[in-house]
């Protein structure tokens, strides 16, 4: 049993958005409706010349205390034994309770228009066949093949680091326990498994 997690090293993110495009291709997210499983925030802070430009990649935090899961009446949202929070597309009724509950804007609806569009675009290879609420899956299908998540594997600057937080030999463990890593909105008690190294 693993405890998968990610560290995002904000010292290096250059906002290239390769992660978004890679995830979109890998997981067939509806880019045509501007919906993505991961985003890169680009915010300016301060006044010239004391300005900072904060580039903050974000995705589902795979919270250990999981508000979306509690809110989901159908059990469509579930957690694997490796702590990955997933949606069972076939069971999801699309009530959006999870979207309201998620404090990290990690979910979006894969609507019937999107399903249709995907079918046109990907033909028999389309992977989203029914409308549902979608979110980052930590690319569980890639994990199963021993491949890094799509966003991680393409990130040019090594900003995204993925692995088993419990494995002391893993890079992600080292970064997560380095003392520099923090969680977003830790006060909410969601216990995210995505950590940030501030720039």
């Amino acid at each position: 049993m693993a405890r998968y997690g990610m560290v995002i090293d904000m010292r290096t993110c250059v906002g290239c958005q390769a992660c978004m495009v890679s995830c979109s291709a890998e997981n067939q997210t509806p880019f045509w409706s501007d919906k993505f499983r991961t985003h890169v925030e680009d915010k300016e802070r301060g006044i010239f010349p004391d300005v900072h430009r904060v580039l903050l990649p974000r995705l589902c935090m795979h919270c250990e205390n999981t508000p979306c899961l509690s809110a989901c009446p159908t059990g469509a949202t579930y957690k694997t034994e490796d702590g990955v929070v997933l949606v069972n597309n076939d069971r999801c009724i699309g009530c959006y309770a999870c979207c309201i509950a998620c404090p990290y804007d990690a979910r979006y609806p894969y609507e019937s228009d999107d399903v249709e569009h995907a079918e046109k675009l990907y033909g028999g290879l389309a992977t989203h066949k029914v409308p549902h609420v979608d979110k980052c899956s930590f690319c569980d299908h890639r994990i199963a093949q021993h491949r890094e998540p799509a966003c991680v594997s393409t990130c040019p600057t090594h900003t995204r680091i993925f692995g088993d937080l419990d494995d002391p030999a893993s890079e992600v463990h080292k970064f997560a326990t380095s003392g520099k890593a923090t969680a977003l909105n830790a006060g909410l008690g969601t216990a995210p498994k995505v950590f940030y190294i501030p720039s």
């Binding site: 009446p73 159908t74 059990g75 069971r91 009724i93």
Partner: peptide, 13 residues
């Protein structure tokens, strides 16, 4: 809802 026909599933959690 996206899938009202499956509303019965709501009695799961």
């Amino acid at each position: 809802m996206l899938q009202p026909m499956k509303a019965m599933y709501a009695l799961t959690n």
